[in-house]
Simulated scan of single mutants.
Amino acid sequence: MRWPFRVAMSTAAVMLFDQAVFAGQFLAGTFGALPTHRANATYSGIAVLVAAAAGVLVRWPGRGPLWPALACLGLFGLIALQIVVGFARMLTVHVPLGVSIIGLAAALAVWSWRPTENAERRPAENAERPAESAERPAENAERPAESAGQPVESAGRAA
């Protein structure tokens, strides 16, 4: 159940990266980028909340970790703080906090795309696993010396 989280977190990470682009456009003299920066901040926060909800699906029913959902909630708190300091024009806090938010969002997006140990297996592969382990002890029981790493003497050779 990682696909909803992958899509939501990747979307949020791109939107948060766009925040730096819009801020840079504003600083370069494109004053129309400031309302876009402000609106995208709201939409980015919503995207992170959607990712948090998708993070719950990673845990239930996906049997994955809970920390991605909690990390998204923490990221949302940082975004809320970022909006407050942005409206207060506290750029000495706003800029480094924005860099941190983008880095955390990117790290979550990268994590979401990493392969998992068992979650990516197809159900047919999972069904074959127990049968394989059941067959191996039977094979090893027929050749106990060979399974222990010792050579087996041939019955046709004289000692």
Rank of each mutant, 00 (worst) to 15 (best):
R2W: 08
W3D: 08
P4G: 00
F5M: 04
R6P: 02
R6K: 10
M9A: 05
S10F: 00
T11G: 02
T11C: 03
A13Y: 04
V14H: 03
L16G: 04
Q19N: 09
V21W: 09
V21S: 10
F22L: 15
F22A: 14
A23T: 07
A23R: 11
A28Q: 14
T30G: 00
G32L: 00
A33I: 05
P35C: 01
T36R: 02
T36Y: 02
R38L: 10
R38N: 14
A41V: 09
Y43E: 05
S44E: 08
S44W: 05
G45T: 09
V48R: 09
L49C: 14
A51Q: 08
A52W: 10
A54Q: 12
G55M: 15
G55H: 13
V56R: 13
L57Q: 14
W60L: 13
W60R: 11
W60Y: 13
P65L: 14
P65S: 13
W67G: 15
L70Y: 10
A71I: 11
F76I: 07
F76R: 13
L78Y: 15
L78G: 14
A80K: 15
I83C: 08
V84A: 15
V84P: 13
F87N: 11
A88G: 15
M90N: 15
V93S: 09
H94L: 11
V95Q: 09
P96I: 04
P96E: 01
L97H: 09
G98I: 13
V99F: 11
V99I: 14
V99M: 08
G103R: 04
G103Q: 08
A106G: 07
A106D: 04
A107C: 09
A109V: 06
V110C: 00
V110F: 01
W111Q: 14
S112F: 06
S112D: 13
S112Y: 06
W113K: 03
W113H: 08
T116M: 12
E117N: 08
E117D: 07
E117Y: 06
A119V: 09
A119M: 08
P123M: 00
E125T: 01
E128C: 01
R129H: 00
P130C: 01
P130L: 01
E132A: 05
E132R: 06
E132M: 03
S133H: 05
E135D: 04
E135T: 02
E135P: 01
E135N: 03
A138I: 01
E139F: 02
A141N: 06
P144T: 04
P144L: 04
E146K: 03
S147A: 12
S147D: 10
A148W: 06
G149L: 08
P151A: 13
V152D: 07
E153R: 13
